[in-house]
């Protein structure tokens, strides 16, 4: 053993001290692990996508069967006059179809961190690998599923005769925003959600309620307190603009859109740090 080769050895230190006490080192470790997790994240994503479709006859179709049924339900509700959804700039079926598809991308992103952590529990308790790999592979999977949804939406739009035009070039920004905000929110609730299962039950309820306050199936109300709720809902500019870009309309609420995205980046960073801190606790308290 020469001195030279042994000094090059990477050093790992474990102590009870919180890494938050040294934020610079913590950030450095976070980004180092993120870089290291790339290969593993890709493999895990490919593995899961293969597994997801290997045991399903309908395979990829599942990515859009659920939004399609939601769309049909709302077209029925609107057409029969049971529910008044307000006037939309584009034909209502297109409005509700794109809305539910985009919303599904958001909820996918929101659910991914917790699902990823839960399904990797066996791996987590036995191997020390960069935990970021789980989050990143979750994002890969969302992108894959979102890609299928986008293709279906585009296909449907072309058939109906709506051409998005050059706005389509900005449309990916809308998708990225939806995934960013969804991942940040999902990651933020994961640490507590993994300890207490109650959180996992509350999220779908909350999401359902939130959907009706976002222009997914309802058009933006013009006035009243509901209109205010729609206005302050941070998801409104995301859905609104993603749909506008897809269907060739000019963007709305761009300032709020930018603010929401910046806040989401900050939130993602904090949630990421908390996620790293909770891992050993999770393995200890729940056996992961």
């Amino acid at each position: 053993m020469t001195d030279q080769s042994s000094t090059r050895l990477p050093e790992t230190v474990y102590t009870p001290d919180s890494s938050v006490a040294k934020p610079r080192e913590m950030l450095r470790d976070m980004f180092r692990d993120l870089a290291r997790s790339g290969d593993l994240a890709w493999r895990l994503a490919v593995r899961d996508i293969q597994a997801q479709y290997r045991q399903n006859v309908l395979g990829i179709l599942w990515a859009f069967i659920t939004p399609l049924f939601t769309t049909l339900t709302w077209i029925f509700l609107q057409g029969s006059g049971i529910v008044a959804v307000g006037a939309t700039d584009i034909p209502y079926p297109v409005y509700v179809f794109t809305g539910t598809m985009l919303w599904a991308i958001f909820t996918d992103a929101m659910n991914a961190p917790m699902n990823q952590t839960q399904s990797a529990s066996g791996l987590l308790a036995k191997f020390n690998f960069p935990r970021e790999a789980l989050i990143v592979s979750g994002i890969y999977k969302i992108l894959f599923n979102a890609g299928i949804k986008i293709l279906l939406m585009l296909g449907a739009l072309v058939i109906i005769g709506i051409y998005p035009g050059w706005h389509l070039l900005i449309f990916p920004l809308g998708i990225v925003s939806l995934i960013l905000v969804g991942t940040a929110l999902g990651l933020l609730v994961t640490p507590i959600g993994m300890l207490y299962k109650d959180v996992g039950r509350v999220i779908p309820l909350g999401l359902q309620f939130l959907m009706y306050l976002t222009p997914v199936v309802f058009a933006m109300p013009k006035d009243g307190w509901v209109a205010t709720l729609f206005q302050i809902n941070p998801l409104t500019p995301l859905i609104l603009n993603a749909r506008n870009w897809l269907t060739g309309f000019p963007p709305e609420q761009m300032t709020y859109f930018v603010i929401v995205n910046l806040l989401a980046v900050l939130m993602l960073l904090i949630a990421w740090g908390a996620y790293r801190l909770v891992m050993p606790i999770l393995i200890e308290r729940t056996g992961a």
């Binding site: 474990y14 009870p16 308790a125 036995k126 020390n128 393995i283």
Partner: peptide, 11 residues
């Protein structure tokens, strides 16, 4: 590194 020690130090 799967669990965090409550006391002590590991290098």
């Amino acid at each position: 590194g799967l669990l965090k020690p409550d006391e002590g130090r590991i290098r």
